[in-house]
Write a protein that binds this DNA or RNA. Sequence first.
DNA 1: GGGTGGCATCAAGAACACGTCAAGAACCGC
DNA 2: GCGGTTCTTGACGTGTTCTTGATGCCACCC
Lengths: 224, 224
Amino acid sequence: MTSVLIVDDDRQLLRALRVNLTARDYQVLLAPDGATGLALAGRHRPDLVIVDLGLPDMDGVEVVAGIRGWSSVPVIVLSARHTEQAKVNALDAGADDYVTKPFGIEELLARIRAALRRAVAGGNEPVVRTETLTIDLAAKRVERDGATVRLTPTEWHLLEVLVRHAGKLVTHRQLLREVWGPACETEVNYLRVYLAQLRGKLETDPAHPRHLVTEPGMGYRFEP
Amino acid sequence: MTSVLIVDDDRQLLRALRVNLTARDYQVLLAPDGATGLALAGRHRPDLVIVDLGLPDMDGVEVVAGIRGWSSVPVIVLSARHTEQAKVNALDAGADDYVTKPFGIEELLARIRAALRRAVAGGNEPVVRTETLTIDLAAKRVERDGATVRLTPTEWHLLEVLVRHAGKLVTHRQLLREVWGPACETEVNYLRVYLAQLRGKLETDPAHPRHLVTEPGMGYRFEP
DNA sequence: GGGTGGCATCAAGAACACGTCAAGAACCGC
DNA sequence: GCGGTTCTTGACGTGTTCTTGATGCCACCC
């Protein structure tokens, strides 16, 4: 189910949004302030985020920037500010859309659909193949020499990030942010442990990996 | 260069957009009506399309739908219609954004940047080539005569700074600050050691470097 | 011709990063 | 609650990378 995180302190608006979104089969997460919003975003990985600029604890632009630091989830900004500068700031901070209050709920829903449609279209990389491996990102399936391999959720998440950037180096920081959230950016040990597990399951010779390559001091790379 | 197709029949608006977009180094294509717009979109494959809803020959929504039939290029709709239904129709037809007239040019530019950012997310990082070298900044990969060269983090960082300023001289101070931090601005020795290592790995004749050139007393220069 | 400053090269110890293992904690389905 | 899986965390041996100082080369200037 598609999940939407709403960061806003306007109870009335919150309720209206929740009712409308729930009725259309979105899973709704609510955060009354920026700090909670960032924490929820890191923890639950919503498919879309709606941020109000006027939050009690911090500026909505900071929330947008905070999310953009580690995720490319679509972000729609709501605001009562009509000034051009506010819009430019929010959009340049990484927001995908800017809707000024008051707005019609149907318009917001249409903009949500548009943002989600793009996100789905953009992340379209179905199947990656090597001589021994078949990785189906959409189906979340990995085969090695024809046999499906069982991966734990974390193992899969890690592999997914690496495969999405196939051929490119992914830094420790980036991997940790994507898989464990921004709070664990320094836990480089996790990577060692899980890369070892992935190699054990996927590589023909785990001691000399051909696809899950270490770039010492920098990060890891999936080599197709 | 990023190309933008504008489908609109309002001459005054067209001129304003063309001037502003050209000044920001976009290549601008103009179409006065929907049919021309669709033809140009098919022929030139622009990176972004701006469509006015009020066209002389057809509804802008049809243009959007026509483009969406075969392309996922970002589309921004302009319109004087403020009704919610118009917005919903355009967005659901496949538009990425809907801007109501009158609008500020800065806002539109910010929305263009946002749409382009999404579309090319990660796609546009430069690759520098010479006869013997291929340096892919995004993938953090260096090839020499087809074989990938292993670089340590510091070596890569140094090379990256030099390549980012390709052709230009980079001072000792600047390099040290970028790679080792402001505290090491005087440790010129570091540069000698690491330039020697880079030359050993990248230059055909390390004693007479062709690409990693010393500018005595000043700094170093990467010569493409 | 000798001195000087900037540069390249070399080498070695210290510091760091990696893979591996193992054990306890947390979580899940039943 | 209980058994099995998954996640976290710490420790260790090994290999690599960084730092640092010493040495020799060259061009330039006196």
